[in-house]
């Protein structure tokens, strides 16, 4: 079965991105497909490479990056939500005239259409938020 995943809360403040991560791991382990995870609302903050959690805590961004790369998951950050919250890739930074970018490896910024498309193309849409 194909799962589409929405993560709609930021890391650390809410447990949502952790629950989503464990769900995706379990789904893959059971032989299901997870073609895309869509990060929305404060969930876009999962994709910043500038977070520095203490060494004795999980690194949410690195966990997602690793899982995404291992299983070819499309980790999409919503552009509209990202722009509000200051999350940029190189492309967006130059388009918007900003002097830095902060998106982590394995993530990409794209539109809300990717969320709808995921809903159309997967068998089950799971939302993790608050």
């Amino acid at each position: 079965m194909k799962f589409g995943i929405v993560v709609s809360e930021g890391p650390y403040t809410h447990q949502a991105s952790d629950t989503a991560y464990h769900f995706v791991k379990a789904a893959l382990a059971a032989g299901h497909e997870v073609p895309r995870v869509f990060f929305y609302h404060d969930g876009v903050n999962v994709g910043t490479r500038l977070s520095i959690p203490p060494q004795d805590e999980r690194n949410i961004q690195k966990n997602w990056t690793a899982l995404g790369q291992e299983h070819g998951i499309d980790l999409v950050i919503c552009i509209a939500a990202a722009q509000r919250r200051g999350l940029l890739d190189e492309n967006e930074a130059s388009r918007q005239g900003k002097d830095a970018n902060n998106i982590a490896e394995g993530f990409r910024i794209s539109g809300l259409g990717q969320l709808i498309e995921m809903g159309i193309q997967t068998d089950r849409l799971m939302t993790f938020g608050d």
Partner: peptide, 8 residues
């Protein structure tokens, strides 16, 4: 979590 996936 495996049970969660199965329920879904």
């Amino acid at each position: 979590y495996a049970g969660f996936v199965a329920l879904a």
